[in-house]
Design a protein around this nucleic acid. Sequence first.
DNA 1: TAAACGTGGGT
DNA 2: TACCCAAGTTT
Length: 365
Amino acid sequence: MSARPASPDSVPPDPGALLAWYDRHHRRLPWRVTPVDRESHGLLPDPYRVWLSEIMLQQTTVAAVKGYFEAFTQRWPTVEALAAADEADVMKAWAGLGYYSRARNLKACAETVVAQHGGRFPAEESALLDLPGIGAYTAAAITAIAFDRKATVVDGNVERVVTRLFAIEEPMPAAKPAVKRQAATLTPDRRPGDFAQAMMDLGATICTPKKPACALCPWERSCAARAAGTQELFPVKAPKAERPTRYGTAFVAIRADGAVLVRRRPPKGLLGGMTEVPSGAWTTAKSAADDLSAAPFEGPWRVLPTRVEHTFTHFHLIQTVRVLDVPQDRAAPAGMWWSPPAELGGEALPSVFRKVVSAALGRPV
DNA sequence: TAAACGTGGGT
DNA sequence: TACCCAAGTTT
C-alpha cells in the first residue's frame, strides 16, 4: 500500500535530531568508535572488526555476540590471521552462535580479502557485495560505519523505524524496496556511519517491537504511526508458516575413559560441517524416536528417561538419547573419532548436540 | 519469491 | 508455556 503523511502538526524527520540523540545515548560496544572520537579526532573503526561484528550480529543479539567477538579478535586480531587460520578451528570457535554457514563464509571472505584486496577491505559497496557472506545490509553497514561513506543501511531495526515513521502498511518483505527508498531520503551526507548506528540503536532501545518508548524518541513528532497511535502494528508481516515437529535418535557411546564418539556432519545444509554424535535422520514420523538403525555399535543401548528437545528456525526436534558404555580398546568406526573429556567442550558441537551429550553424561559440556 | 538456515532471551 | 524476536544471506 502507500505511505501516509504524519499528522498535520508533524515535522519532517530531521537526521540531525537523530544524530544529536545518538551523541547522548549511543551504546558503547567493543567494535565501535565513539562519536566524539570519530568527530573530534577523525578516528575510524578497524574495518576488520566492523566486518566481523556485522557478520556475527546477523540475526543475533548483541548480548550473544560480545563474548564471541572478544574471543575471535583475541585469537585472530587481523584479517590476515583469520585467513591463515584452520577452518576447523574457526568452526569450533563459532560453535553455539548458530547459522554456521556464516563461519564458513567468514573464513572464505577473509581469504578473498587477503588474496584479492591486499588484506584491506574495499570501501565500495559493490565490491563488498561480491564477498562471501556479505549481502545488501552488511555491504552498506561496512561502507557507512567503517569508512564513513554514505550508504543506506537497512536492517530489522531500520525497517521497524521507517515503517512506523511513514506508516507503511504494505507487509514485509514486499515493502523492503519502499523502506529502502524512504531510508535513503533520510540518510545525511554528514556522519553517515553514525547515522546508520543511530537508526539501529533507536530501533533497539526506543522504537522496540513491543511497547516502544515513543516519549523518548527524537522523532516522535515526525512519526505517522505515533500520531495515529498504531506504532505497535508496524512493521506489518505476513503470517508465519507452522513449525512441524520432527523426531530422531542420538547415540552417545561412552568409552571407559569418558571419551565420546563423534563425527563430522556433511559440509552443506543444516549444521553443515559441524560435529555431532551419531544420529538417525530427523523425520516427522514418530517411529524415528525409537529407531536403532543408525547406532554406531551393536549393544544394549539404554534409553535416557528424558528426551532432548530443541527448536530450530523451521522445525521443532525431539530426540531420544541412547547411551552405551564401551571398553577402552573399542575402535571408532570409519569417519568417526573419540573425543576425550578434556577436548569435548572445544569441539564444534552445535547447541542441539551439546544438549544431547550433556544429558547423557549428566554434566554440562 | 520463498524456504532454508540456530540460538538464547524476553514476554 | 508458547511465541516472538535479533545488526541477513544464500539458493
